[in-house]
């Protein structure tokens, strides 16, 4: 027992592991998972230039040094952790968006469902684009996949879910890390998240469209 008159009972015994994992979960959605999503959209958007350029960029990425390590540490493990811990968090909440249909409450519910959809899509996407092609996907395989209506539809759903999840996740992250602390800052963070979600959705749709219909609007860049 301390004898100092102004002492509260000791609280060092509080288990702070949940705090650590929750904050890490929020951060991992931005870095590295969100950053990877941005990189993935970026490298795939080369399809808007030409199939050859697209394949060259793909080659480049497939021949990165230390690729297995980079992929495991920067993509697979973070995604698995983010998804796994996300499902655990989902199980501890009880959505009530129908009883209290305020915007952010809907976002709370949609964040969970979009995460699930994105996770299922990623699993299927990795299976079809990576394992079925033996790690050698290129414009031809992607074009063939996307010529299938069901594939294309699932791609669009996946793009939408992942884009929403990232945009709303940015807003969540800024609030949960105390970076957007005032109501004004939180409103600005919400607009930022919405802008990210809309941009990613549009870019994703454009990429899918481009690969499916052989549409290369930026091809003239290489003609000169």
């Amino acid at each position: 027992m301390s004898t100092h008159p102004l002492t509260m009972s000791a609280s060092k015994t509080d288990d702070q592991s949940a705090f650590f994992w929750r904050k890490l979960h929020s951060l991992s959605g931005i870095v590295p998972v969100g950053v990877f999503l941005a990189e993935h959209f970026w490298s795939n958007s080369y399809v808007l230039v030409s199939p050859e350029k697209y394949d060259a960029v793909g080659q480049e990425l497939q021949t990165l040094p230390f690729r297995p390590i980079i992929e495991a540490a920067g993509i697979w493990l973070p995604i698995l952790f983010h998804a796994g811990y996300g499902f655990y968090i989902w199980g501890k909440g009880k959505s009530n968006a129908f009883a209290y249909p305020w915007m952010h409450n809907w976002m709370y519910t949609l964040q969970r469902w979009s995460g699930l959809i994105a996770f299922l899509f990623i699993g299927w996407h990795v299976y079809t684009a990576r394992f079925l092609t033996g790690g050698r996907s290129n414009f031809v395989t992607v074009h063939d996949d996307l010529s299938n209506n069901l594939y294309a539809a699932f791609y669009l759903v996946g793009v939408l879910a992942a884009s929403f999840h990232l945009g709303n996740g940015i807003w969540n992250f800024l609030c949960k890390w105390g970076l957007a602390a005032t109501t004004r800052a939180q409103r600005a963070a919400a607009y930022l998240g919405a802008a990210v979600a809309v941009s990613f959705t549009l870019a994703g749709i454009l990429i899918v469209y481009s690969a499916r219909y052989n549409f290369h609007p930026f091809a003239r860049y290489i003609q000169q």
Binding site: D14, D15, A18, F19, R22, G93, M107, N172
Partner: peptide, 16 residues
Amino acid sequence: AVMGPGGVADCANAQN
């Protein structure tokens, strides 16, 4: 205390 069980990390930002 607030970083312990049931503390601030449990907020999931539904903002109701």
